[in-house]
Amino acid sequence: MKRILALIFALLGWFAIIMQYYLMLQNSALSFGEMTIRFFSYFTILTNLIVAVYFTFYVVKNPQKTEHSGLLTAITIYILIVGLIYQVLLRSAWSPTGMQKIVDELLHTLIPVLVLFFWFLYENKSGLHYKQIIKWTIYPVIYLLYILLRGSFSGFYPYPFVDVLAIGYPEVLFNSFWILIFFIGLSMLFIRFGKALNK
């Protein structure tokens, strides 16, 4: 059953990512190179890509229940951050239609829920511990540094709450700090809940 679910989730993830890339190509006036760089500058895309790769390897390798604790938990937290920030801060910013709406819901709603469901059923929760949070923060911190660095010479910032040109560095750092706090709090909640489930 695990491999079947992993296969379904992997296919959904790859479909959503590839279709989103195709839609951006169709609607962008940018050069192919710049559009591609911007596509992979979204935390949503990168995180859904991580999800798709994880489930693809899960299907191929078929890890046992004793697999290393923490990886799936970290991925689950990343994709939930994608979903929650979109629902709270970004959903009202646009109203996609047609295929774009379907892809949008897959990337920001359905896939986060499915990953959470998979975590609840199959994560090896016995090895979760709070010191893992430090390692889990590496990805979002590196991502933030990347978009700020590239934005400083390209002028492109993928999200309004990190748009230095529009709100300035103090506000961006303030927003990033609270997102980091939210991430750490959510991570602690997952570890505590995981330990409770394991008991």
Score class of each variant (00 low, 15 high):
residue 99 M to V: 08
residue 53 V to H: 01
residue 41 S to N: 14
residue 48 N to K: 03
residue 79 I to A: 13
residue 76 T to L: 02
residue 94 W to L: 01
residue 32 F to W: 12
residue 26 Q to A: 14
residue 99 M to I: 10
residue 89 L to W: 00
residue 79 I to W: 12
residue 67 E to S: 10
residue 35 M to T: 06
residue 83 G to T: 02
residue 82 V to Q: 02
residue 21 Y to Q: 07
residue 79 I to E: 14
residue 37 I to R: 14
residue 95 S to P: 00
residue 33 G to W: 15
residue 31 S to D: 15
residue 96 P to N: 05
residue 47 T to R: 09
residue 40 F to E: 06
residue 59 V to Y: 07
residue 37 I to S: 15
residue 41 S to Y: 04
residue 73 T to Q: 05
residue 44 T to L: 01
residue 83 G to H: 02
residue 53 V to W: 03
residue 91 R to D: 08
residue 38 R to P: 04
residue 73 T to H: 05
residue 29 A to P: 10
residue 22 Y to D: 13
residue 85 I to R: 06
residue 42 Y to N: 03
residue 56 T to A: 07
residue 82 V to I: 02
residue 74 A to T: 02
residue 54 Y to M: 14
residue 33 G to A: 15
residue 36 T to W: 01
residue 71 L to C: 09
residue 50 I to Q: 14
residue 60 V to M: 14
residue 71 L to E: 12
residue 66 T to C: 10
residue 82 V to C: 02
residue 39 F to M: 14
residue 44 T to R: 00
residue 99 M to T: 13
residue 75 I to S: 13
residue 27 N to W: 08
residue 77 I to N: 06
residue 22 Y to L: 14
residue 57 F to G: 05
residue 42 Y to P: 01
residue 67 E to W: 10
residue 81 I to H: 00
residue 56 T to S: 15
residue 21 Y to I: 02
residue 53 V to Q: 05
residue 73 T to M: 11
residue 26 Q to W: 02
residue 81 I to K: 00
residue 40 F to N: 06
residue 54 Y to P: 08
residue 44 T to K: 00
residue 72 L to V: 06
residue 73 T to P: 04
residue 40 F to H: 08
residue 87 Q to I: 10
residue 51 V to H: 07
residue 89 L to F: 02
residue 67 E to C: 04
residue 28 S to R: 11
residue 97 T to W: 02
